[in-house]
Simulated scan of single mutants.
Amino acid sequence: MNIPSIGVEEELLLVSATGNPLPRNQAVIDSLPDLDVTLELTRAQVELNSPVCDSAAELDQALRSLRSDLAGAAASEDARLLAIAVPPRGAAAQLITKKARYREMADRYGLLAREQAVCGCHVHVDVPDQEAAIRVSNHLRPWLPTLLALTANSPVYLDQDTGFASWRWVMWSRWPSAGPPPYLESPEHYDALVAMHLAAGTIMDEQMVYWDVRPSSHLPTIELRVSDVPLTVDETVLLATLARALVMTGVEDGPGPKLEPEILRAAYWLAARDGLTGGAVDVATGELLPVAEVLAKLVQYVGPALQELGDEDLVADGIARALSDGNGALRQQRTFREGGDVIALTEVT
């Protein structure tokens, strides 16, 4: 198999000493002129961008360094940097970043935009061309709920236990082009759907195709967007490794399975609510299975790619650790219900 390069974008939250979202992203970024860190939709968010990496170890090192540098810059602005996917305290509506594109989004989408201080993790994986990206998108669709469950990290929102492992998914689903991509027949089919959204005015441009998998509009990659920002670098690297193995498998395979949309919808909802604590819907059959069994099916599916990458142990250890110790969502819920400090748990240092 051809081994593609990977890159990761992590959106992180800036909060005050008391844990309320803090609108200082411009000042934090201005203090880091040499790092690839960018503004996000609300002024309490920043996004770090890893370099293009050829191995999991390289990605791990890059993310640890970027998180550390960004946390230091935040501290210099009296801010705390959180690896969390929704604001754990404060108000729902946030100040919009002073950037023309974001101001237009606020004008067009109103409260939907102002309540979007949600932080995701996006994994870019190299693909040969758009035709390959379309094929890979179809192959990734069955596994999107599983990846969401694995990386869920947003159960606490505005001092409330939402009852969902990924409340970010609930909030993000309100956008007109969010969620799983449709089964795509060809690049022309993709272009036609984007053109429909543009003509209808539901999106401003192709960058607002917010499907959980999409061909990048500006890079020769396919972009996996389903995940909450994970609590730890280990979890982000696990996600990126599984994403790369899925892309490698999809590139080598046929057109991909067509799924019953209602089964996929149910699988998503259950993954967002339960994360790793309940069952999972097998999207091929509609059967409810233990989440560990569905994760095992995923590992088996990408097994040859993981072997080629030399990342079998990394994935096995990462999944075992998530199932035994919990992901970010489970650790947040446990901390919140025991009266602990979710801010301290999720703070990047």
Rank of each mutant, 00 (worst) to 15 (best):
P257T: 00
V118G: 09
H189S: 01
S137Q: 11
E9M: 04
W175V: 04
S173P: 06
V37F: 14
E10P: 03
D107V: 09
D325K: 09
P145H: 01
V118A: 10
P51Y: 02
Q116M: 11
D253H: 08
L288P: 01
A267R: 08
E47Q: 06
A165E: 06
V229C: 07
R244C: 05
L35R: 15
Y268F: 00
A271D: 09
N138D: 10
G90D: 10
S216A: 14
P4F: 00
Q333W: 15
L144P: 08
I84R: 05
A149F: 01
S216Q: 12
R135H: 03
I203D: 12
Q207N: 15
D341V: 03
G328D: 15
V28I: 00
L330R: 15
S5N: 02
R89T: 01
V251W: 10
T151V: 12
E252M: 11
V28L: 08
A91N: 13
H139K: 15
Y301R: 15
P261F: 02
I319R: 14
V118C: 12
V123I: 05
V348R: 07
S227F: 01
A73V: 09
R80G: 07
P21Y: 10
G278H: 03
D313L: 06
G339Q: 13
Q26W: 14
M171R: 15
D311T: 11
G326K: 15
D228I: 06
S186P: 04
D129I: 01
I6D: 03
S55T: 09
I343N: 04
R273V: 10
D191P: 02
R244F: 13
E131G: 02
E293N: 02
Q307D: 03
V247W: 08
V226R: 06
V251K: 11
N138W: 07
E347D: 04
L309T: 03
